[in-house]
């Protein structure tokens, strides 16, 4: 069982949840025949996570949902009881994704490495998934939730094409790599405008600049208006848009394919 966690450092709105959720659903589909529950998605946002809302399919259902936060804060004895199974029926069979919704914590949530290990052990024992995908809020070094990276096999960095975002991702990813020894997956350069590929301050191409700052050629996910429509509809992109009509979906499927080789 591999554990992947997404981060944009201290920056929000970079599309972390969108990238990770689409990848998790795609892997859940690809490995549906070899695993009963191939993918487990943990939304550790301390407010209403967007992935949670998409998975529950309702703008209000999160209020009554159990969350892994309930276990971590001592309100649930069994961590598995904080997980739900979402099932989609397609012409190519059923897709199952196990997930734990986010929950507003009403303050900072302290996370012990022991408690998280307990959750991961319970998941491996009960569900034997191929991978666990951890969605996190914006984090800076020293944030209590950074303890997650003590159990993460791969950090998935997501940045948008702007200096603050690239520097924030670089700063935080370097920190967790040095402190926790986590491996870093290929970074995602998200919401990239193909016709605005030049960074205006230095005249360098964004992809080259991202490669220089992040230390590796990024996987580019183009800006796609269809994603705004999908978000407004509370739908997950890869389940409603074909790769032929959506360049964003095409790129996310490509990134899921890249991550697959890390398993």
């Amino acid at each position: 069982m591999r554990v992947l966690a997404v981060t944009s450092g201290s920056k929000g709105g970079t599309g972390k949840s969108t990238v990770l959720l689409n990848v998790a659903v795609t892997h859940a589909y690809w490995f549906k025949d070899s695993h009963t529950y191939p993918a487990v998605f943990v939304d550790l946002n301390m407010d209403v996570g967007s992935a949670t809302m998409l998975l529950l399919g309702s703008p209000t259902a999160w209020r009554d949902a159990r969350s892994i936060v309930d276990f971590l804060q001592g309100r649930l004895g069994d961590p598995i009881s904080a997980f739900y199974v979402k099932k989609w029926s397609t012409e190519d069979g059923d897709i199952r994704l196990v997930f734990s919704p986010s929950k507003p914590t009403g303050g900072t949530m302290y996370l012990s490495l022991g408690a998280l290990r307990q959750v991961l052990n319970a998941l491996e024992r009960s569900l034997n998934p191929l991978a666990v995908y951890v969605d996190l809020p914006p984090l800076s070094p020293g944030h209590p939730l950074e303890a997650v990276f003590g159990h993460v096999d791969y950090v998935v960095p997501v940045s948008t094409p702007d200096y603050p975002s690239l520097e924030a991702v670089h700063h935080f990813v370097s920190y967790v790599r040095d402190r926790y020894g986590a491996s870093v997956a290929k970074p995602v350069l998200n919401m990239f405008s193909i016709d605005r590929d030049i960074e205006p301050v230095t005249g360098e191409k964004w992809a080259a600049l991202a490669s220089r700052i992040l230390g590796e050629d990024p996987h580019v996910v183009p800006y796609d208006e269809l994603f705004l429509v999908a978000r407004a509809a509370l739908e997950i992109e890869v389940l409603k848009l074909s790769p032929h009509e959506s360049p964003g979906v095409r790129a996310l499927i490509g990134y899921a394919d890249y991550l697959k080789i890390l398993f």
Partner: peptide
Amino acid sequence: RRELPRPEELRARKTRAPGR
């Protein structure tokens, strides 16, 4: 101009297998 579907049209679509 790219014709975008309306959100309700997207919701009404059949769920597809990712990448298909």
